[in-house]
């Protein structure tokens, strides 16, 4: 049984509220010109499910995607023309990081770190964010081997 695929697919079923719950967020984001269509939401969930499958993970809620939509809307680098595409990239970076940090960091902290770089030194470039996060993941693993995680040491910074 491909457990990851099975569980993650449940949220795309007609009975699932996932799509509706994400569309409700348009009320908050439309003032920034960010509006998702039902098709956009389905695309994002399908993409997320593929990422989850690739990383052998299971997600039983849409809290991460909801949080990413909200923090992206508040970003100075938000771009309505690349809305879905950027969110997908951010989802991919998030789950990469979640695996690399061996479930030792909370979702909120991970998203906070990603967006700190996205809004700051990376100036809205997901490629730069990805590169920074790869370096961070490497540092994290090194710290784990040495027995001191900078995450655990300090909530705000990695270094």
């Amino acid at each position: 049984m491909d457990f990851s695929r099975l569980i993650n697919a449940i949220q795309l079923s007609p009975q699932s509220n996932t799509v509706k719950e994400l569309l409700v967020l348009n009320e908050k984001t439309k003032e920034y010109g960010l509006v998702l269509t039902p098709n956009d939401v389905t695309t994002m969930i399908t993409f997320r499910n593929k990422v989850l499958h690739d990383y052998a993970r299971v997600e039983l809620s849409n809290e991460v995607l909801k949080e990413l939509i909200e923090v992206y809307a508040a970003s100075p680098y938000m771009d309505p023309n690349h809305y879905v595409e950027t969110l997908n990239d951010l989802q991919e970076i998030f789950y990469y990081l979640r695996n690399e940090t061996e479930d030792k960091i909370s979702d909120i902290k991970l998203i906070d770190q990603i967006m700190t770089f996205f809004n700051g030194p990376c100036a809205g470039s997901v490629e730069l964010v990805r590169s920074e996060m790869e370096q961070m993941a490497e540092n994290f693993r090194g710290d784990l081997i040495r027995g001191n995680s900078s995450f655990e040491r300090d909530d705000k910074t990695w270094n």
């Binding site: 993970r57 299971v58 789950y95 695996n99």
Partner: peptide, 8 residues
């Protein structure tokens, strides 16, 4: 702290 876990 998290809404996802590894498949295992």
């Amino acid at each position: 702290e998290s809404t996802s876990v590894s498949s295992d």
